[in-house]
Design a protein around this nucleic acid. Structure first.
Length: 190
DNA sequence: CATGGGATTGACT
DNA sequence: GTCAATCCCATGC
């Protein structure tokens, strides 16, 4: 997607990314779950201001922000809004598309367990082989690439929900899910 | 310079 | 349902 796609309010981008495709090498998947983060609310890393850690978040839109969660997992975000604003969309789950065998191998799962491959923000980075070195990369040029919706996902029904696993600003309904998808990290709340 | 929490996952009870 | 693993980095003394 072009940088202009990301130079919009982060909530619009979070919804607009549902149905788009994430590519890395020979593996890819369709985005079925996202969350929005913005420097105006305390759950966002950028809330504390510009630091070495949040440099990418405040940088130009359309870049990858990859950071380490719980010292264990790499999480993939797409930087949004104009440069100088700390906002990003967390990619939380994918529907596996290409390179499924390779993804299963990386995840240590039997081929055929499609739902276990990318149903979580840490799982999908492991399945696609995305790591901290991908931080700051251009999402239009790679190595990690996000491209537009395939025909089958051209007009997705999107459900809003509360964000998962955070303690601050937990009341904001800034989670976006593809309705009925079996590949979500957590089912949509009732 | 020491401390503690975090946008998670998987193994175990 | 509970809990440890593991590490970056913001905060506070």
């Amino acid at each position: 997607m072009k940088p202009s796609f990301y130079t919009r309010p982060v909530l619009e981008v979070a919804e607009g990314l549902i149905g788009c495709v994430v590519d890395h090498g020979e593996t890819s998947g369709v985005i079925v779950e996202t969350e929005a983060y913005h420097d105006s609310e305390p759950a966002c890393h950028a809330y504390v201001g510009l630091t070495p850690r949040t440099e990418t978040l405040f940088g130009p839109p359309g870049r990858a922000y990859v950071y380490l969660s719980y010292g264990v997992h790499a999480l993939l975000n797409a930087v949004c809004e104009p440069e100088g604003v700390g906002a990003a969309v967390l990619i939380r789950a994918l529907e596996p598309l290409d390179g499924i065998e390779l993804m299963a191998e990386r995840r240590g799962l039997p081929a055929g367990n499609l739902r276990g491959l990318c149903s979580g923000p840490g799982k999908l980075t492991q399945a696609l082989g995305i790591g901290l070195s991908d931080n700051g990369g251009d999402l239009a040029r790679g190595p990690v690439v996000i491209s537009g919706r395939p025909e089958r996902f051209s007009d997705p029904v999107v459900q809003r929900d509360l964000r998962i696993g955070i303690s601050k600003a937990a009341e904001l309904p800034w989670r976006f899910c593809l309705a009925g998808s079996p590949y979500l990290s957590v089912p949509v709340r009732a």
